[in-house]
Design a protein around this nucleic acid. Structure first.
Lengths: 138, 138
DNA sequence: TAGATGTCCTATTTGTGACAGTACACTTAA
DNA sequence: TTAAGTGTACTGTCACAAATAGGACATCTA
């Protein structure tokens, strides 16, 4: 599930947080799901337990997970909603990137095409999710 | 001209490189223009000369500036073209961001509005540049 | 009860960025 | 000619953050 890019300049603990958020957004991790234990993930990724703990602690303080000593850590009920709201309200990074592309002479039509493609591939994914409801094999 | 955000996690030398590139893209720095000297900028920003040197060395290796020992460093002839080409070809970061926004439920119309605004503000800026040509006070 | 869980703690190591200081060759202008 | 300014190179040192190492405790479950 989780993977680490040792070459990345982004700290390992942040990589884990980002990946967990992505899993929540995409629905791979749903409310109530248990995430791997600190020691388990530590052994699997060859990462120090303290580093994993730091990432999970951050997820908890963001309200995305709930930890239960002795049992494990679980995705919070409102994790997806919480995360979506936060991501939606943060458009400054997009603006900065768009300005740079505009300055670099990237045609507006090209950028708009990328926007269309992003939303189109999402629709396809959602459609697949719906189809699962009628799929007897699930 | 150059400024440093000491609070930023981005290394000082990289901040300088990014700013120089931005100046080149926006036309503030044009081909042939001399950029501040290592020692001058060092004194002005209270930054170690080695840090400035590192940034300028990077700009040189990217083909954006040309250094002449004893004279100074100058913006390369094809700096703007080189930079534009590089920035335009890098749309993967945009795709990643768009996917995240789509997943978070940001309406496509909102994203498209941001695209329009980015290109509109650029047009206004260019128009202002043209108007300068007819401005007797310059 | 044994094993797994989250949590906390104090070190230590490591890598990177920045700093300090010096030196050399070159160009320009007084 | 000379002094000042330029780029470039080098060897250290320091500071900080991330990650590691090792241990400890309370809790829950099979």
């Amino acid at each position: 599930m989780f993977t680490i890019d040792a070459m990345s300049r982004q700290p390992v603990s942040e990589q884990l947080v980002d990946q967990a958020e992505r899993f929540i957004l995409t629905g791979i991790l749903k409310a109530g799901d248990q995430i791997p234990s600190v020691r388990n993930l530590s052994a699997q990724l060859y990462i120090n337990p303290n580093t994993i703990q730091k990432a999970f602690s951050e997820l908890g303080s963001r309200g995305l997970t709930q930890a239960v000593p002795g049992r494990g850590s679980f995705i919070a009920e409102d994790a997806a909603a919480l995360l979506s709201k936060r991501k939606r309200s943060n458009l400054t990074a997009l603006d900065r990137m768009l300005e740079e592309l505009a300055l670099a002479g990237a045609p507006q039509s090209v950028v708009e095409e990328h926007v269309r493609r992003a939303y189109q591939s999402l629709e396809i994914r959602n459609q697949t999710e719906e189809e699962k409801l009628y799929d007897p094999s699930v």
